[in-house]
Design a protein around this nucleic acid. Sequence first.
DNA 1: ACGAGTGTAGACAGACCTGTCTGTCAAGTG
DNA 2: CACTTGACAGACAGGTCTGTCTACACTCGT
Lengths: 218, 218
Amino acid sequence: MDVAARNQTPGARERILETASRLFYRDGLRATGVDTIIAKSGVAKMSFYRHFPSKSDLIEEFLRRRHDRWTVWFTKAVERRLKKRGAGMEVVADALREWFAEPDFRGCAFINAVAETPLRQAEQNAIARQHKEHLRSFLEKLAERLSLSDPENSAAQAMIIIEGTIVRAQMTGDPEVPATCRQLLQSIGASSHRPALGNAGSLGKGRKSATKSSRKRA
Amino acid sequence: MDVAARNQTPGARERILETASRLFYRDGLRATGVDTIIAKSGVAKMSFYRHFPSKSDLIEEFLRRRHDRWTVWFTKAVERRLKKRGAGMEVVADALREWFAEPDFRGCAFINAVAETPLRQAEQNAIARQHKEHLRSFLEKLAERLSLSDPENSAAQAMIIIEGTIVRAQMTGDPEVPATCRQLLQSIGASSHRPALGNAGSLGKGRKSATKSSRKRA
DNA sequence: ACGAGTGTAGACAGACCTGTCTGTCAAGTG
DNA sequence: CACTTGACAGACAGGTCTGTCTACACTCGT
């Protein structure tokens, strides 16, 4: 029996994961009980525990899956907009706007996960951190491609702006948030980029040693 | 019996609130049960329910209290640094650094509260939103005092940067985060401010109508 | 035909959760 | 002294949570 053969039906595992993803994101990890997931996905309890030995396993799988899907979507959304001539880091804001417009948007699943997880639960927090590091790395490469000054610092700035934008969108619901995000993103790493505006300095080589970020964590 | 007479002892209510504040912030709202709070604050169950008819009431009181205390601390921390000649919006980053250095720092209690609260719990979310609106308003007045261009827009930018900084500090623990925040804050509303660097435009009057933020919410 | 794998249905255990209730004690006040 | 007020101690109810277990059905490949 090959791999293709066993995946012909939607399957219990898939239904569980789909339901769990929706509920975990909408209501929170802790607020969603396994009984609810089992009932809503129309599955037997033993089927649930056959596929996921514990709720934690399901949560971790949910986070990994969410990382995969979100990253694929985000990368495409950015790359698509990047094709336009003269496009820069600010296209990220437009991608985010698209995300925020989804009717069930409730912030970043990873920020939310960390927010409701005590420090002792190591695994969940680790997955969330990895997701963010992945995003940061993507932005650093993007900064390089765009010939921004100091890609590492530019990525660090972009991360702050992006996280802030997501949180603001979640908490206020204000539709102006992506526009403000766009302004901010346009201002980073602007030294060797788009010489038309030509305002060098002021950012990226600010006072004191602003870019000693090579050695991290004390 | 006047008001002064009944508040002579530390009291059960105070102990409950103190314990709850610590546990709610450290472990999350949902992860902290009333039994634990009652046990750790050395109080009888009925004393607890006399002062707080339900757990929700305690949570709301916790949030209101946290808002009061944090706001007092933050205002002072900013005002103190603002006295220095030439100080601008970036002093906020230094205040945040001070906060992040606290050993039990685990992000913003209000972001965390919203993150773990399903949309249907209106009251908690409302208090959190009010807290953020209060902060935004403070920043707008600050922007005015500093003669930044478009105070409303400057405050909107600052909010994104601040929220992002808090989330980054919480998720990565990277001690460089406040420095990056500082760079970003220095770049906002820079048109009529600190003419030495003199890089006008590029921000605040970016492409399209970036500052139509007067009409909010659709 | 048979066994392995996957599924459903639902009882059950044991922990934990919020909230109620009874009863005792000590300090302050008329 | 009698009485009120606030606090303590802890049993209890009723619900929900995670996770286990038994029993039965269907579909494969061999």
